[in-house]
């Protein structure tokens, strides 16, 4: 049963990483920095989840990336693109709507009453 909860938990977290990564990338960060920040915030995320996501967001034009070869090893830094900066507030609004709705559903005693209240 615990593996079932682990799977559901991992799925839920995976869905959150997108908006969290976008929010973090208001600053210029490289992949492993993001992994560490997420872990420190309690949202432990695997590289196999985060790195493909960053590449996808980059190909969608929401992120910009740049290789920095000055340090001991090359690092790929990511940052929000102008399109990403424009999209972030809208995504935050969507996120607030979702959390509000989920919160109402989780806290309601009777789903039927909730539906009636929403209808009014």
């Amino acid at each position: 049963m615990s593996s079932l909860f682990d799977k559901i938990g991992a799925e839920l977290r995976r869905g959150l990483v997108q908006i969290v990564a976008l929010s973090l990338l208001r600053e210029r960060l490289y992949g492993y920095q993001i992994v560490k920040i997420l872990a420190a915030s309690g949202l432990e995320t695997e590289e196999g989840t985060l790195y493909p996501l960053l590449r996808r967001l980059e190909s969608q034009g929401l992120l910009l990336s740049e290789w920095d070869t000055h340090g001991s090893r090359p690092r790929k830094y990511y940052e929000l693109s102008p399109e990403g900066r424009a999209a972030l507030p809208k995504l935050e609004e969507v996120w607030r709507d979702i959390t509000g709705a989920v919160g109402r559903i989780l806290e309601s005693d009777s789903p039927a009453e909730l539906a009636e209240a929403e209808a009014k």
Binding site: Y30, G31, Y32, E47, Y51, P52, R73
Partner: peptide, 14 residues
């Protein structure tokens, strides 16, 4: 190449 370099850098950092 990009993805592998990124993974390699992460492994070495860790």
């Amino acid at each position: 190449r990009d993805a592998l370099l990124e993974l390699e850098a992460t492994i070495l950092d860790r």
